[in-house]
Design a protein around this nucleic acid. Sequence first.
DNA 1: ATAATTCGTGTTAGCGGTAACATAGTTGAA
DNA 2: TTCAACTATGTTACCGCTAACACGAATTAT
Lengths: 341, 341
Amino acid sequence: MSPQHNPSKRPLTLRDVSEAAGVSEMTVSRVLRNRGDVSDATRLKVTKAAKMLGYVPNKIAGALASQRVNLVAVIIPSMSNMVFPEVMTSISEVLDETPLQPVIGVTNYLPEKEESVLFEMLSWRPSGVIIAGLEHTAAARAMMQNADVPIVEIMDLDGDPIDAIVGVSQRRAGREMAEAIIEQGYRKIGFMGTNMPLDHRARKRFEGFTEALAKAGIEIADQEFYSGGSALVKGREMTEAILKRSPDLDFLYFSNDMIGAGGLLYCLANGIDVPGQVGLAGFNGVELLDGLPKQLATMDAERHQIGRIAAQIIAARANGEEVEARIELTPKLQFGDTLKR
Amino acid sequence: MSPQHNPSKRPLTLRDVSEAAGVSEMTVSRVLRNRGDVSDATRLKVTKAAKMLGYVPNKIAGALASQRVNLVAVIIPSMSNMVFPEVMTSISEVLDETPLQPVIGVTNYLPEKEESVLFEMLSWRPSGVIIAGLEHTAAARAMMQNADVPIVEIMDLDGDPIDAIVGVSQRRAGREMAEAIIEQGYRKIGFMGTNMPLDHRARKRFEGFTEALAKAGIEIADQEFYSGGSALVKGREMTEAILKRSPDLDFLYFSNDMIGAGGLLYCLANGIDVPGQVGLAGFNGVELLDGLPKQLATMDAERHQIGRIAAQIIAARANGEEVEARIELTPKLQFGDTLKR
DNA sequence: ATAATTCGTGTTAGCGGTAACATAGTTGAA
DNA sequence: TTCAACTATGTTACCGCTAACACGAATTAT
């Protein structure tokens, strides 16, 4: 009873199944959705007929009729930064236990792209939206406010959420890193980051960082920015450049772990004593760091938790449950081997 | 004229816009889709009204009525392996130039999960399917055959495609790597890979590899497998284990670059002469390798090309164009610094 | 035994759009 | 002038499914 190749080109509908099974379309619909009372005998007839024909229900029609859609829009800036696929993985894990299904949209960090992706996704009337960050165009905000579905903004916590929010305070993360660095006695601090004015999270971390330094009467001694290319290579190159230019730096703060790892590898290869001569720290707590010769100091951005909780909020709301709308997670500082004297 | 917060909870429909603009629903539909002749005056009235109300069209209804869906199902085994997000990125790049939009499904390398994800996606009647690999359950194959949309199987090339196929021959990739290794004079060869019987591409590479070795009268001298955890760490650990157990190995072939990088770092840290004492090679050509102290030999799996071409095939077919159905790409061997004597 | 439930199935009327055709005005060529 | 051809808009009939209700048969309660 393997599915037959549909001979007429006409796509199969409930009617085809119902005729094959000798029952009404409604009964087939009930069987296929496991809803309502159907006798075992008819249930069997119907499943048999459906399988034999190779019937695949049309969710478009179903969604229109029932006003229910099991899709959750997930909007992220990029797939090249492992952070976002990781968040996605956690979201998927949670939604796998529910009838909901994630649909991913990528914005490339462009607000207008975000707006158009959002518009596109909302036009499928999803059961919820998970979106990275708090900065959106006015139109995007308005769309989300009017959409009448749960909206969860993730990753960041510094700003006004539209609805629910799950993340870490990026400012605080930058601040705490600065405080730890100062506490360890480092004073001549260099910063390396991405050249992306639209990466608001990186920007806020930097602001928190400099703010805390300022409170201790310290200023960034030198800085370096990059864009594009392999982050590991860029980290290497920037570290070389900054140390040649400012040999008296005693600490390098990298805005992400990949460039931090590049910096670490550069120092190790060039006999620079880490953390004696120069201390190093990154951000994110990516798994990769575990495999490096030395453990880079970093701060875990809690992205698995974030994905998990965001998905749970959507799932709960989809069931009509009320849930707390603001979840602040605490980024955990890991000193590793590169941040101590 | 910023969008008003919809006062009645009832979601907006074309009718609301049409009433606000004083025209028929059909005219609004025409304006919003840029189809058919509409006078500039009415066009303006309509866009104004739509914007004012904050109207978001309902694609579900639209898709049902027009029998057209702009979604492309993309089914991949995992998001944790950077290879797949990279393919996704290329697919997105191409589809961004079209009205089509990718929808991602993740199978976790499980055939049954693949089947259910596929079923779910097909029930949204996408305009095409891009799916990793050639191994599917019978039911999954049947569904794709009956779906009457373009299907592109990607990454692999060794097997019978359902429709179109874009990829590299994994067997050949393994074979060519083996031949290069032998050519360089290595003879005592160790293999390290994942413990995943369902990763068919890794399996085929391994088969091609051993086959070519056999042709030269060589057998794998020792092997090691891992599952889960940080690939970089595992590469390190496995390398240590295999070299302790079989100190006479003169080459280590890793089934992916991450464990290869771990192996490389281990060797460097332990003063093992690479490639003098031991040669190393991985697979995939991941960007990360560029940042390591030594360039690991690898073979580029052409995943950006694969994503791009797969998306182009779908886009062309969606326009009714005929396109070649079998694209074989050639994995390029990169000797790097770890495969020569 | 008879009414009140429950069970299993069918019927009807949309869901919110769009294809296809219909219909006035307008324009322009014969 | 007269009618074919076009322009701008409207009307109608679905797309494939499900909510809501209807209804006879079977079961249970009284």
